[in-house]
Write a protein that binds this DNA or RNA. Structure first.
Length: 614
DNA sequence: ACGAGATGCAACC
DNA sequence: TGGTTGCCCTCTCG
């Protein structure tokens, strides 16, 4: 059987027809795929082929009417968007857990291994005809699941209604026989342990562990015994910022003040108890405010790091920002030289402010003199972004950094130099954040773009691989503020992350999910209060304050500002408020009267409710 | 009820 | 090694 191929000769001096040069990658099965090809599709294909041929050279143009998958360009199946729903492509790895797709493949012993590239170590997969199967991975690679070297990935598949259950002693994952699984069938969507991949028990009992137990633990503050999950929206400011929120920080001494940074470089200061006392300072930075931190000895100002390449020290009363360092004194010279600041932390013991840029460098500033100390140190791969810095709360000499080179790295502040990191924690993709645990400082929690949170149980123990991996869907496209899982500063070991739902995770287990049906946007930015049972979350341009249900004091909206109250909220938060400026460049968010934009008035219900309160 | 665009990373050569 | 291309899980505006 042959395809309907149309060959168009070009009127050029090209030597010969080169259609044979093209690798013939498809086999007979494609033929079945021709059946129905509608005209539009034919036209599309013709256009594609012609332009492709133009690009290549002067070769004859071959038009073949194969129906191919939009995702992988192979025949035999169709994937991609069918109307509004996305059909998974069986050849693509699962979007959620990123487990690769293993085709039903028996490696040729004459070919190098598909995985480790070692000749002679062929990648072999056995499948039995019934629904039970065995999968044997390459022995040169650490186990794909538990990451333990030498523990080869041996899988027994048992058919069940969830797909195929994979049974082994040290992990708990589902797989689907001969082609892994797709996003729709990912076991992490339904796993009761919320995608936790338990690790083998790790106790080191080495001398460092002993030192830790003897010397450090007695100094660690008592754990707050009980904690309450703030699970109800108490108050919110809708469209507070003019661009999406990038970071949140609670005031270190004033319990009711929340600071928020946005993509435009503006800084919000909000007293969420006196709900309407809020301001957005517009002249703090020129673009994205990436991180902020208080110096708790002077809580009237906050340090901020921005993509405009400056470190700011902003007065919260006046909004006046003092620039402590500017990495782009010469102005814009093109993207290859423009420096942006991402990671930021304060080391109180040493009186240092630490910032890191998008080229892999760390800068130290003396917080008394505001002067830069020494030269910048390359702490991540040259040219890669360093997105996070965190000083160890117990050992001031320890610094944790993370960045786009897929690593989180531990450093000794006393000997900072390129390549001298104490430890490098490998990740599958970009590491969004890395934090030491707040009380003991001995654990590490990281969030990576490979859709996994990782917990390392002891910095004194084995750091070759994480103690736990938690699959959590946060690999969104670039338009969301990156997710960063954080420890609860009050309770250990508890941490949380969220998507549309809030998820508290302790020792890898899901404790609670709290949701608010009126929040229709994803909330990637979250901050737990250092003392109160309060959670602040930033979602798009809005900020929400969560409190526990039983204690919650419902704050009534006092004015027409964009405040909603949980439970009484209108069905749609996205309603347009009458008179609200549509212009997102509106800096200070004073609410205008009911003048402009008559064509875009609010829905009747919301307009009524606003009027009543004016 | 659409579509565009703002964007960052990774894969590909 | 740089330059180009493509991208599913958003959100907003027109």
């Amino acid at each position: 059987m042959s395809f309907l191929n149309v060959v168009i000769e070009r009127d050029t001096d090209s030597e010969e027809s080169s259609s044979e040069d093209e690798p013939e990658d498809e086999e007979g099965s494609d033929a079945k795929a021709i059946e129905e090809v509608d005209e539009d599709e034919v036209v599309e294909r013709v256009v594609e082929e012609v332009s492709a041929a133009k690009k290549r050279d002067k070769a004859p143009i071959t038009i073949s009417l194969k129906k191919v998958c939009k995702v992988c360009k192979r025949t035999g199946h169709e994937a991609g968007f069918k109307g509004a729903t996305y059909v998974d492509c069986p050849m693509k790895p699962c979007f959620l857990c990123k487990m690769p797709v293993y085709p039903n493949y028996i490696g040729c012993p004459m070919k190098p291994c598909f995985l480790c590239k070692m000749p002679g170590k062929s990648f072999v997969v056995y499948f039995i005809a019934c629904d039970l199967g065995t999968y044997i991975d390459c022995l040169m690679k650490p186990c794909f699941l538990c990451k333990m070297p030498g523990k080869s990935f041996v899988v027994y598949f048992i058919a069940c209604d969830l797909g195929l259950l994979l049974l082994d002693t040290h992990y708990w994952v589902l797989g689907t026989g001969n082609e892994g699984h797709t996003t729709m069938t990912c076991p992490h969507r339904i796993a009761t342990e919320h995608g936790v991949i338990p690790a083998p028990h790790r106790t080191t009992h080495n001398s460092l562990d002993y030192v830790f137990e003897r010397q450090l633990r007695p100094g660690i503050a008592k754990i707050k015994p009980a904690f309450v999950i703030p699970d109800e929206v108490n108050c919110a400011v809708i469209r507070y910022h003019s661009r999406r929120v990038t970071c949140l920080e609670f005031h270190p001494t004033n319990n009711n003040i929340l600071l928020s940074g946005d993509k435009k470089g503006q800084l919000g200061v909000w007293d969420y108890v006196k709900v309407h006392e809020k301001i957005v300072y517009g002249n703090v930075h020129g673009c994205i405010l990436n991180n902020m931190k208080f110096n708790s000895t002077n809580d009237g100002t906050v340090y901020t790091a921005s993509s405009d390449g400056t470190v700011g020290c902003t007065d919260l009363e006046t909004g006046i920002s003092l620039s402590l360092m500017n990495l782009n004194p010469g102005g814009w010279q093109g993207p290859s030289s423009w420096r942006m600041l991402y990671g930021l932390d304060v080391n109180l013991e040493k009186g240092l402010l630490l910032v890191a840029d998008n080229f892999g460098f760390l800068y130290l500033l003396d917080m008394r003199s505001n002067n830069k100390i020494g030269e910048a140190t390359l702490i991540h791969k040259k040219g890669s972004k360093v997105v996070g810095l965190h000083c160890n709360p117990v050992q001031p000499d320890l610094l944790l950094s993370c960045g786009n080179d897929h690593f989180a790295r531990i450093w000794d502040m006393r000997q900072l130099q390129a390549g001298s990191s104490l430890c490098n924690l490998a990740h599958g993709r970009v590491v969004n954040s890395a934090y030491f645990s707040p009380q003991s400082g001995s654990k590490i929690l990281t969030t990576s773009q490979d859709n996994r949170l990782r917990v390392w149980d002891s910095i004194f123990g084995n750091l070759d691989s994480p103690s736990r991996e938690i699959v959590h869907s946060h690999d969104f496209n670039r338009h969301l503020t990156p997710f960063r899982a954080e420890w609860d500063p009050k309770v250990i070991p508890c941490l949380f992350v969220l998507r549309n739902a809030f998820t508290y995770i302790s020792t890898g287990q899901l404790i609670s999910e709290v949701t608010e049906p009126n929040i229709t946007t994803i909330s990637p930015v979250n901050k737990l209060h250092p003392r109160d049972d309060v959670l602040a979350s930033g979602s798009s341009r809005s900020i929400f304050i969560w409190r526990p249900k039983e204690n919650s004091e419902i704050v009534q909206p006092k004015d027409e500002t964009k405040i909603i109250v949980c439970g009484r909220a209108e069905k749609k938060l996205k309603m347009k408020f009458e008179g609200e400026s549509d212009d997102s460049d509106n800096d200070n968010f004073t609410i205008k009267g009911k003048n402009s934009k008559s064509g875009k008035s609010a829905p009747k219900s919301s307009r009524r409710s606003l009027k009543g309160k004016r």
